[in-house]
């Protein structure tokens, strides 16, 4: 089998940042936990609210991808740009963050999804904790990109960080994190004996407590690949919508046959990623629905860029949808 390969800088950077800084873009905990500052969530408790910084990372990743589309990631220029990373080591300034954040948009929206998720879960009676300082990114990208040796050590750190919270249940708002905790980590580390649940499953269990939400417009459900195929969670979304009285339609491909949003190839194949996303947006808008509901941060981000081109359907994370429903109980 193979000798070591020289791999694209963008992959090396993601790996280094996860291993050294606890998330793919080396964001500081004060940044990733800013959304929770007024929520007074305890660090320890029975139910750990786990963000993995995934929604927080989205605006930065989007900006990075825009940079990648301008500068060929396999080019010398890109390698040179990435050399700016050396400045980080000398000055403590994060280069990736500098150029990424220059272009960062939608930060407010993505950060607030965490807040809204907590709000919805609290309304349903869940008593949550959140480790603002100690929470680490789930490591899903290490797994996806093949950095399995790094993952062995990193998984232990994640496991330890969760163990410290003394939680009995971990609620993940990203299906990618849930997949890692439920299916991958138990195979490679001594993962804490916790129940791992997605946000959708937590809501589904107490869906009878949700109020009816008057909604005249038709919605379409986009199932995330990870949620529908890896975690077998798709009917739960329909049950929740049935419970709150929201009419929905299915796109041409749904549930276990759902179409990928293109997000996974954003970093290495940004052009292909956009076309895949665009085709999925067409599948969603072809239903005639006015709104598409998403339940994965990467799907939200990947599809949003194509929605912005005016495809006649509004994209909303199901967390945002439920939050607005609970707050307003109308005007959905």
């Amino acid at each position: 089998m193979p000798a070591k390969k020289k791999i694209p800088p963008v992959l090396e950077i993601l790996r280094d940042n996860i291993v050294k800084h606890g998330n793919p873009l080396a964001l500081k905990p004060r940044e990733t936990s800013a959304w929770a500052k007024n929520l007074e969530l305890p660090v320890k408790g029975d139910i750990l609210f786990y963000t993995g910084s995934e929604y927080q990372l989205l605006p930065f990743i989007d900006s990075l991808v825009k940079t990648l589309k301008i500068v060929d990631p396999s080019s010398t220029i890109f390698s040179w740009l990435m050399e700016a990373r050396k400045i980080v080591n000398m000055t403590g300034i994060n280069a990736e963050k500098i150029y990424a954040s220059i272009l960062a948009k939608d930060k407010e929206r993505y950060y607030s999804i965490n807040y809204k998720a907590v709000h919805v879960l609290r309304k349903l009676g869940y008593d949550l904790c959140y480790d603002r300082q100690g929470e680490l990114y789930s490591g899903a990208l290490l797994y996806e990109l093949g950095f399995w040796k790094d993952l062995d050590d990193y998984a232990q750190r994640v496991a330890d960080s969760i163990r410290k919270t003394e939680a009995k249940t971990v609620v993940c708002i990203s299906p990618h994190a849930a997949e890692m905790f439920r299916k991958v980590y138990p195979q490679i580390v001594d993962f804490p004996d916790v129940q791992v649940k997605t946000f959708i499953e937590m809501v589904w269990e107490k869906r009878h407590l949700l109020p009816k939400i008057p909604c005249d417009s038709l919605v379409v459900i986009h199932d995330s690949c990870r949620l529908a195929r890896e975690l077998d969670v798709s009917q739960e979304i329909r049950d929740i919508l049935d419970e709150i009285g929201v009419k929905y339609v299915e796109p041409f491909r749904s549930k276990e046959w759902t179409t990928c949003c293109g997000g996974p190839s954003k970093m290495l194949f940004p052009d292909i990623s956009k076309i895949v996303a665009g085709r999925r947006v067409i599948e969603l808008s072809d239903t005639g629905a006015e709104k598409a509901l998403i339940s994965c941060p990467y799907c939200l981000s990947a599809l949003q860029s194509e929605i912005d081109k005016g495809n006649g359907v509004i994209l909303e994370d199901i967390i945002e949808f439920l939050y607005r429903g609970l707050e307003a109980q109308c005007q959905i």
């Binding site: 193979p2 000798a3 070591k4 390969k5 020289k6 791999i7 694209p8 800088p9 060929d72 990631p73 396999s74 080019s75 290495l268 194949f269 052009d271 292909i272």
Partner: peptide, 17 residues
């Protein structure tokens, strides 16, 4: 050491095309 970075460059151009 083979260079995936370079291989990806050519390959990606073909894919995009």
């Amino acid at each position: 050491m083979s260079d995936l970075n370079k291989e990806l460059g050519t390959y990606t151009k073909n894919l995009n095309k």
